[in-house]
Design a protein around this nucleic acid. Structure first.
Lengths: 341, 341
DNA sequence: ATGAAAGCGCTAACAA
DNA sequence: TTGTTAGCGCTTTCAT
């Protein structure tokens, strides 16, 4: 941060404007002038000060992504995709995490954690609609994830109900009838699993199976340990499912560990389906059948939405607010339901 | 980004400086004035423009972290730790990834990917000392990881040789004698596994075992699939180790999958030790014995090093350049060497 | 095609 | 204690 346009201008014996023109590849510069200025730039090792440019232009080229937890491979993989897509659009990504804690999610949404950003992609877990309704920050916001919001912000997700239905249908199609859902929340106020639970119910009813509450297991969180605890508790209570549909892959993996410890064979005794398609599920002793959301599409939709919005803030023609943008998903069938071939 | 200090000043009928004083909690402001200005701030919904502040102060409060791959849980977990430590120091983190590609690592080190940062923490895989020697960017740089560099940049790592030795000693202590190393590189020019390989050799010799090259397996990368391929190739070639020490947990997990497919039982037929202690290793059908680096300490040392350097750029008393900062590690013994209890 | 000068919003000397 | 003012380095009218 030492040599500025002015220094280059003096060295080349031209005005600041001319140097700026060269730096920004302005069309109308004579070749001779261009090489002369370029020479001065190279000799001095000039690098434009982006902060100054940002101040002048009112934009930073940075978008923030806030996820619950980087320790969850789904979010780590998603973050990687967001970084790539953002780079395609010449944006860099500021990463933050909230631990899925409502208070932190509010702080992030209000811009109190990072305030030099052009836009924000937030994947909330506990945030409520009201928290966002009272939002005062004016940087464009895009929401990710399984929660439903009725707010003037774009929301990007896969069709969670349909995905859950596909997962459970796969299990009923294999003749399973006692299909547990692992990963609900006890406090109905906060129910990220809401839609997936609904898909579970619908698919069961389709097959003439009455959903039983004893087969719905609550969890404290959605990590491997939470899945293990929930699975163990269900088995201890005497409930014996012949299949498990888990809120996500981590919960499924925790459940599989417990099943393994108890001598229950996956998939023969209990079939397991997860959600997220994290890489981990492709390499265990028993590979995991799972709902695979198109992470790259999610990343692309999110980044493009936020960018179009920050452009819209300047130009006139805005898109409607609060769109529901849906990415594709796929059911990937592996050993945890099909067995080893 | 609409209402500025000036607007607030006019509203409150005071000077810009006074508003600035209030915003920055300057000590000498009369309580009456403070509340009066605060009122105007609240009414107008004023938010300081950080870009302007940064331009003025010459700092952005952003440090960049560049890792090979967020899909590798080790780096995802490390990134989470870096974000936390940075937040403790009021810094935010710009995240980038390089795919472990030398060219991209060079771009990052030169600041061509993100140029609004106060400092850079880079975890290179293929970068060579010469690439850094010709570095022209002047933002403070800190290096992470297993490579050795002789450069004027702080380098943070655990004692890789000692860690590898501890891992292999654990295996020899269990009576294993044919201990494979999974995760070398064929091109000796680039050998991130160098130090771990040395530890492997030393520990074997200590036990009077002559290291055999047939037990060293090369890989194309360090992901699960690479571990699987390397393990399969070794078994196919007729080499039959009774233990495997892998470059990292992912390679170990890939290897375990192949052992499982071939009906070789871990740890009875083949014991396995990984490196990194990613969460995934704690929940498989066979939990993974591994070298656990103190990720939080690494994050702390990295962030503090980079911050002290950017402070040093302003004040006089600099620390010596190119320090070797070492974090602790621990060997965590699990089922892949001890079996199920 | 190039130059001069204003100003983005803020902080920090210096004055009062 | 509060006000005035000069930049931080850049882009951008408006002249030339």
């Amino acid at each position: 941060m030492r040599v500025s346009l002015k220094d280059v201008a003096e060295r080349a014996g031209v005005s600041i404007k001319t140097v700026s023109n060269v730096v920004n590849n302005y069309a109308h510069v004579t070749p001779g002038m261009r090489t002369r200025v370029q020479k001065a730039i190279d000799e001095l090792g000039y690098r434009p000060n982006l902060t100054a440019r940002h101040l002048r232009k009112g934009r930073t080229g940075i978008i923030a992504l806030a996820v619950p937890e980087l320790g969850n491979p789904y979010f780590a993989e998603l973050a990687g995709a967001v970084i790539d897509v953002a780079a395609d659009h010449d944006f860099t990504v500021l990463l933050d995490h909230t631990q899925g804690d409502r208070e932190q999610e509010v702080l992030v949404s209000q811009g109190f954690r990072a305030r030099v950003i052009d836009g924000l992609i937030l994947s909330p877990l506990e945030l409520e609609s009201d928290d966002l309704r009272s939002r005062t920050d004016d940087v464009p916001l895009v929401l990710l994830g399984e929660r439903e919001y009725d707010l003037p912000y774009d929301h990007i997700a896969i069709d969670n109900v349909a995905a859950a239905r596909a997962a459970v249908r796969h299990l009923t199609g294999l003749g399973r009838t006692r299909i547990a859902f692992l990963g609900a929340r006890t406090d109905t106020a906060n129910q990220p699993a809401h839609l997936r639970l609904r898909g579970w119910r619908e698919a069961l009813k389709e097959s003439g199976i009455e959903p039983q509450e004893s087969l719905v297991a609550s969890v404290g969180g959605w990590d491997r340990g939470d899945g293990a605890v929930a699975m163990a508790r269900m088995l201890d209570s005497g409930v014996r499912p012949d299949a498990v549909f888990a809120f996500n892959d981590l919960v499924a993996i925790g459940a599989m560990r417990v099943l393994h410890e108890r001598g229950l064979r996956v998939p023969w005794d209990v079939a397991v389906v997860g959600f997220d398609d994290i890489a981990e599920g492709r390499y265990g002793a028993v590979t995991l059948t799972t709902v695979s959301p198109d992470k790259h599409a999610i990343a692309r939709l999110a980044v493009e939405s936020v960018i179009s919005r920050l452009r819209g803030a300047e130009s006139a023609g805005n898109e409607p607010d609060g769109r529901e943008l849906t990415a594709e998903f796929q059911l990937v069938e592996r050993e945890s339901t099909l067995g080893r071939r």
